[in-house]
């Protein structure tokens, strides 16, 4: 397969690379850029474990092909903690016991981040809708919802 050259910003750093056009963003992140914080739970856009930010919008990275990210800005879970300081959402997840097995957690955090970027003061209903594409088998969601509410001013 002929490679395609793409340029994008990943976690505030400019990246230029040749990619197989059939590679998904998820695979690119995990296999070629060694950013394994983004998880694969279903590979078909149903579980949200692979959620990342693409130009500030939450996307399922398993459904995005690598050429589609050309010229965009991608933010993954690895960039949420900056200079050893946790994002407010991350701290709130700890404080509200919103983490159990942790496999859905990066995706949950990125969906929540996308919501707060767009809507800094969401209602609980808006939080539930924003996270409705992220499945969690462990928590029953209530601590996750509370954690996002706890990160709102």
């Amino acid at each position: 397969m002929k490679k395609t050259k793409i340029q994008f910003v990943l976690n505030e750093k400019s990246v230029s690379m040749d990619v197989d056009p059939e590679t998904t963003l998820l695979s690119l992140l995990r296999e070629e850029l060694f950013l394994t914080g983004t998880k694969e739970g279903c590979g078909s856009g149903e579980c949200g474990a692979c959620t990342v930010l693409m130009d500030g919008v939450a996307v399922n990275s398993c459904l995005v092909l690598a050429p589609q990210i050309n010229g965009t800005e991608i933010i993954t879970i690895e960039a949420l903690e900056t200079d050893g300081k946790l994002d407010r959402l991350q701290q709130s997840f700890i404080d509200h016991h919103a983490v159990q097995c942790g496999f859905c957690t990066p995706g949950m955090l990125m969906s929540a981040k996308a919501l707060l970027l767009k809507n800094p003061r969401p209602t609980q209903e808006e939080i539930r809708v924003a996270l409705s594409g992220n499945l969690c088998r462990c928590t029953g969601y209530q601590n996750i919802i509370a954690a996002v509410e706890g990160a709102v001013d």
């Binding site: 394994t36 700890i94 016991h97 097995c101 942790g102 496999f103 955090l109």
Partner: peptide, 22 residues
């Protein structure tokens, strides 16, 4: 008293390594 989970930090930062991450 609520004791924070020690495993939470790795899981909220993407640093926790699951089998497919190895």
């Amino acid at each position: 008293r609520p004791v924070d989970r020690q495993d939470a930090y790795g899981k909220i930062t993407g640093k926790a390594r699951y089998v497919d991450d190895l």
